[in-house]
Design a protein around this nucleic acid. Structure first.
Length: 286
DNA sequence: GGCGTTGTTGGGGA
DNA sequence: TTCCCCAACAACGC
């Protein structure tokens, strides 16, 4: 579900709410959502204070004051982190009525309770996500596997063009490759291709300098605008208060099959590419 | 009711 | 080595 803008929205929301708070209880309803030993998991987290929330690509990383372990959280397709303090949780308005049930519900797999009574719920309908404790060394190794990320200092034209010149393959697959560029997912990959006027089916080794430059610029522009708008809620994505993101209204091609292109009016096409639904304008994109 | 979808990612086989 | 397909899973739309 969430791509970089959605995970970043969650990270920022949580940062202002749980930094410095002590975990008083860990409740695991579905053990398979925890990678590694369950006993160590709860033991390690108990009575720890959260010192920082980081994000690398789509992976959230919680750090603690009393332990060097890091809590890695991946939401995969349908994971949600829902925060409640009293009754400030806005559950309404979900496209799937079943999701509007009070927390915890049948999709809640892990809970963190904090000393002030607030709680963090991990809901995941499809159960693809995971929570995992890692050492600082493991964290470092994991982070090194991620490619350059839009909105960071390392995302320069020099780095981008250098990497692209050595890369082969279908553009869509390259944009989705987290070890190459981190943070883009299926929605934003399609949007970046459209904004850059390049067909996602093209091979990257034959892209012109102008096209590469457009892709570089649009990776940043689109991700930045999506972050400003708190992400895209197309199906399951919700922020920590259960509210939708605001970027859906800016989507030019994703989810717009057969609808007219916003630039030229040609119906948007949808195909399967790199195993994913892929949307593009057959006229604007070359 | 069956089948094909779905925002991810890695593992296995060619 | 590189790429493609598929599974992990639940629920919805047709």
């Amino acid at each position: 579900m969430p791509e970089l803008p959605e995970v970043e929205t969650i990270r920022r929301d949580l940062e202002s709410r749980i930094i410095g708070k002590t975990i008083t209880q860990v409740v695991v309803h579905l053990p398979k959502m925890v990678r590694g030993s369950l006993e160590d998991f709860s033991q390690t987290l108990q009575q720890n204070r959260i010192s920082a929330l980081q994000r690398v690509g789509k992976l959230l990383q919680l750090e603690f004051i009393e332990t060097p372990f890091v809590l890695l959280i991946h939401l995969k397709m349908t994971g949600q982190l829902l925060y409640t303090h009293g009754n400030d949780f806005a559950a309404g308005g979900h496209p799937f009525p079943a999701f509007n049930e009070p927390l915890p519900n049948k999709w809640t797999h892990i809970e963190l309770h904090f000393e002030d009574g607030s709680r963090l719920y991990f809901n995941d309908l499809r159960q693809f996500g995971y929570w995992q404790l890692a050492t600082k060394n493991e964290q470092k190794t994991i982070n090194q596997r991620y490619g350059i990320e839009p909105l960071t200092q390392g995302f320069t034209w020099e780095a981008f063009s250098e990497k692209m010149s050595k890369k082969k393959g279908i553009l869509k697959a390259v944009l989705l490759d987290q070890t190459f560029i981190s943070g883009l997912g299926n929605i934003y990959a399609d949007e970046v291709c459209f904004a850059s006027k390049v067909l996602p089916t093209r091979r990257v080794e034959i892209l012109s300098m102008t096209e590469l430059s457009a892709l570089f610029e649009n990776c940043q522009k689109i991700i930045e605008k999506a972050v400003e708008n708190r992400g895209t809620s197309f199906r399951d994505y919700k922020d920590t208060q259960g509210k939708a993101g605001g970027y859906a209204k800016f989507l030019a091609v994703y989810g717009r099959e057969k609808e007219p292109c916003l630039v030229c009016g040609t119906p948007i096409k949808k195909i399967k590419l790199a195993g994913r639904g892929t949307h593009f304008c057959p006229s604007c994109q070359k």
